[in-house]
C-alpha cells in the first residue's frame, strides 16, 4: 500500500507547552484511521501539521510526498479538511460559499450542486449560511471537504453534535471514499463516537501517542477481562466460588454474580456453567467496551507495536 501521510518524530511546542511529543506514524491509501484523545491531547495540532498551517518544532511531516508547510499547493488540492467547529461567513448562501471553495480548488461550478444534494443541503442551498443550524453547517463543512475528489480527508471531530441520520450519511460517504483509496483520518474525543467504523486507532494522550493498531489488536494487547453475568434462583454464589477461584467475582445481589474472565478463559467458564447443571436462568456476556479500552490505554501510556 502506498503511504499518503508520514509523520516522523514530530515535536510541536507552543511556547512552553509541548502539544505533540515525538509522534511517528504512517497512514496508507484506503485506510480509515481514528485519532482519539481528550481535548488538548494534540489531535487538532497533528491535523494542522499535516495541513502545513503550522510547522513542526522537530521531526518531519510528509503529505502525498510533499512537505505541506513548504508553500507548494499541489498536495492541498487533493486534500479535504473539516475543522472542529467549522465556521463560514454568515452573509453568503450555502451555494455561494461552496462555489468559492470550489474555485480555490480549481473545481468547476458543476461540482457544487451535486455535492450539496449529497449532503442533503439541496433545498437550503440558496439560503444564507447565517440561518443554518449547527447540523446544516456541519453538512456544508463536509461538502467542502469532499470537493476535488480528495485522496486524503482530515476530519476533526466530525460527528460531534450530529443527529443519527446525518451520522449515517456521513459514514456512508466515508466508506465510499475509502473504497476509492482515500485515506480518511477522523479525530474524536471518545472511541465510542466512532462506532467501530475505523480500521485502525491511534490514541493520543497529552501529546504522546499511547497506542496505534486495529481495534482487535488493541483488545489483545490490553487483555481486558470479559464480564460474564450469571443469574440463578439459588446457589449461584457457591458455584462461582467453587469453580473459578482464579477469576475475580462480584456479587451483584442474591441471585446475580458477575465474573471477570481474563481473555482465553471465557469459553472455559461458559462450559463450566453448562456442566454444573445448576439452575442458571440467564447468562450475559459483556465484552470490554471501547470506553474501557480507551481508558486502559490512557492509564497505561504504553505504546503498542
Amino acid at each position: 500500500m502506498t503511504a499518503t501521510i508520514e509523520i516522523r518524530d514530530v515535536v510541536k511546542r507552543f511556547g512552553k507547552v509541548e502539544a505533540v511529543r515525538r509522534v511517528s506514524f504512517v497512514l496508507a491509501e484506503g485506510e480509515t484511521v481514528a485519532l482519539v484523545g481528550h481535548n488538548g491531547a494534540g489531535k487538532s495540532t497533528l491535523m494542522k501539521l499535516m495541513l502545513g498551517l503550522i510547522r513542526p518544532t522537530a521531526g518531519s511531516v510528509w503529505v502525498l510526498g510533499e512537505d505541506p508547510a513548504a508553500g507548494e499547493f499541489a498536495a492541498r488540492r487533493r486534500l479535504g479538511y473539516l475543522p472542529e467547529n467549522v465556521a463560514f461567513n454568515a452573509a453568503l448562501t450555502g451555494r455561494e460559499t461552496l462555489a468559492f471553495y470550489a474555485r480555490l480548488k480549481r473545481e468547476g461550478r458543476t461540482a457544487v450542486a451535486p455535492l450539496l444534494d449529497r449532503v442533503g443541503l439541496g433545498p437550503a442551498a440558496d439560503r444564507r449560511v447565517g440561518t443554518y443550524s449547527k447540523g446544516m453547517r456541519q453538512r456544508l463543512g463536509l461538502a467542502q471537504a469532499l470537493l476535488g475528489e480528495p485522496r486524503i480527508l482530515l476530519l476533526d471531530e466530525p460527528t460531534t453534535g450530529l443527529d443519527p441520520a446525518l451520522r449515517q450519511v456521513f459514514y456512508e460517504i466515508v466508506e465510499e471514499l475509502r473504497g476509492r483509496g482515500t485515506t480518511v483520518l477522523l479525530s474524536s474525543h471518545a472511541l465510542t463516537e466512532l462506532e467501530e467504523r475505523a480500521g485502525r486507532v491511534v490514541i493520543m494522550n497529552r501529546g504522546v501517542m499511547a497506542a496505534d493498531g486495529t481495534l482487535d489488536a488493541l483488545r489483545r494487547i490490553a487483555r481486558l477481562p470479559t464480564r460474564i453475568r450469571l443469574t440463578a434462583e439459588t446457589g449461584v454464589h457457591d458455584l462461582a466460588d467453587r469453580l473459578w477461584t482464579d477469576c475475580p467475582c462480584r456479587r451483584v445481589d442474591g441471585r446475580v454474580v458477575e465474573i471477570e474472565a481474563a481473555p482465553g478463559r471465557k469459553m472455559d467458564i461458559l462450559r463450566g456453567v453448562m456442566a454444573a447443571g445448576t439452575a442458571v436462568e440467564d447468562i450475559e456476556v459483556v465484552p470490554p467496551t471501547l470506553d474501557q479500552l480507551y481508558a486502559h490505554f490512557l492509564r497505561s501510556q504504553g505504546t503498542a507495536p
Binding site: 495541513l51 498551517l53 508553500g71
Partner: peptide, 12 residues
C-alpha cells in the same frame, strides 16, 4: 475560525 479553513486550501 473561517481563516483556518481558508488557509487549508491551496491558496497562499
Amino acid at each position: 475560525g473561517t481563516m483556518l479553513l481558508l488557509l487549508s486550501y491551496p491558496v497562499g
